[in-house]
Design a protein around this nucleic acid. Sequence first.
DNA 1: AAAGTATGTGAAACCCTTTACAATAGAACG
DNA 2: CGTTCTATTGTAAAGGGTTTCACATACTTT
Lengths: 348, 348
Amino acid sequence: MTVTIKDVAKAASVAPSTVSRVISDSPRISDRTKDKVREAMKQLGYHPNFNARSLANQTTKTIGVIMPNSANKTFQNPFFPEVIRGISTKAHQLEYGLYLSTGQSDEEIFEEVQHMVQGKRVDGIILLYSKVNDKVMKYLHEQNFPFTLIGRPYDETVRGVSYVNNDNFKAAKTVTEYLLLLGHKRIAFVGGNLDYVVTIDHMEGYRRALNNAGIEVCDDYIVFHEELQEGGQEAVIDLMSLSERPTALIVADDIMTFGVMRMLSEMEVNVPDDISIISFNNVMISELSAPPMTTVDINIYSLGYEAANLLIDKILHPNIEARKILIPHKMIKRQTCRRLVESAKKTV
Amino acid sequence: MTVTIKDVAKAASVAPSTVSRVISDSPRISDRTKDKVREAMKQLGYHPNFNARSLANQTTKTIGVIMPNSANKTFQNPFFPEVIRGISTKAHQLEYGLYLSTGQSDEEIFEEVQHMVQGKRVDGIILLYSKVNDKVMKYLHEQNFPFTLIGRPYDETVRGVSYVNNDNFKAAKTVTEYLLLLGHKRIAFVGGNLDYVVTIDHMEGYRRALNNAGIEVCDDYIVFHEELQEGGQEAVIDLMSLSERPTALIVADDIMTFGVMRMLSEMEVNVPDDISIISFNNVMISELSAPPMTTVDINIYSLGYEAANLLIDKILHPNIEARKILIPHKMIKRQTCRRLVESAKKTV
DNA sequence: AAAGTATGTGAAACCCTTTACAATAGAACG
DNA sequence: CGTTCTATTGTAAAGGGTTTCACATACTTT
């Protein structure tokens, strides 16, 4: 049926091992023989069998990409195609393939990871999320299996975890300071799922900035929501029902901001005249909102690219020590923030 | 090092073949033996080696997913995570894994597909796009390798291609008719890349509706753009520069519509008062535009789900004949279309 | 008691490559 | 001319399973 190395060997009247060596371009084979074998390979249309190769080599040249639980809509966030594009680019350069997780629940995902690892289906794994107390991460760490995190481990004292992250604490702090400088005092924080480390870092940055400015953190101004659009919308309802409405919002994610802005517009609250908004990620469409949103570009593509780089490095040099990469972020000022004029909003 | 089937066999004092039979739950093994072997597997923490299995079985339980050329931004369209979610769900149900293409250019992708197929890395392939004269499709067809298309082959006379598609012709026709009923006569069409079959189908539907209504199709009203946001923006510039501006726009994709609406808002052209818009896909955020957009829901998730279903069927029953599945679409009326009042726009 | 039939198990071949080791031939050397 | 190198190629085992075939039981049947 299929053309194997033996067929090529026969056709070129050499031993299978010779063919194998020609494939890996071993210097121990004479040029004459190489030519002869290559000719035969072309004639017969030979392609190496991937599985046999992996088996003999104990290496798959494949990296496993673990997406978060896809039950909720988080998944539709353009964040994912973009990280994957980054991962994909680097992987392709180094001739690695990508194997995607398909599990829907945390439990399913965990099982899948076990299979990937124990079944030697991939050489390493990239986790596209960082959760607090993540079973998957714990497992990979225990198994001493090559992996990198996008984000950071919740407990940074855990040694030996490579990750690539933004300085989310700093980004959130800066963003809050920016709003403070614009004269805002009642700044609310609309976070994502609290199980994710990024949410915690954002919140800490926000708190710190407020503390530094001597402003008391008001619990009513801090809300969390898992779902992207719906979450954004519910957050707005909660916040706008307060007797003292916030004058500015820090929102965890651009997509959530779309939800927020939609709801605000239904309530006829004008952005940025009545309320300022700043969010995170700068996905492609965030410049297309009405008005275009001010957000923090976190360089999603690089996050993926560097994660792949780190991982493959680890695969190739297992004894290399863990590295942490910080991808720079950058505030992109567009049109959802405005300076608060002193007297103005005194009348609530 | 790793626990193999032989270790299990020894521990349970049976032959390796017996262990193998237990794994595949063969009816020829007594329950007592099965229990004994399973106990041993658990004790030793045995997991079957995937590559060895694939090699012996000649089957990988993996399906290859080919994304379009990721050089341009098309990729960031939330369409992709959503189809993949559909594919992923079905694949997971039937215990198939997903292997993703990483090539950036058409040429790279083609090579990759060749490797996947010849190297027996996957059991079947799903093409996430349908292009005119697609080399990849041609190749898969020639090789008689199991694959399904999302979209449809340009040349439908090619026998034996399974695909899942929307009736894009009909959707575009309906949408055009809808605008006609609202009193629009100057309806423009902003299409995607003309290499994609979907673009052609949309255009044909549009033309047909106009013809049926006895309205001459004006070439100036038909524009195409590859890029999503930029494309949308450029299209608007072109159309709004015409002496007779269109009163309604049919846009190929929701993301593009975001670009269109952004540009329109910069020009201070009001949607829907000055111009009506209707587009396709209904991705998650399309309800979050300002105003929320009227669009055609094409059920992206099902597209993926059914494609996986079709493919796996084909893999399992190679002699089954090719099937075509049409996923129903549905117009979602939101707020970007309005009735044209007779007298109104006469003054251009 | 002999023959026939399930049922359970083991040995060995096979899937395709890689690789350690062996073998051969020709070149260089004394 | 015999010996030692060196360059090149071959042989066989390993990598971890699956599958076929044949054999050994135990149980019916006549």
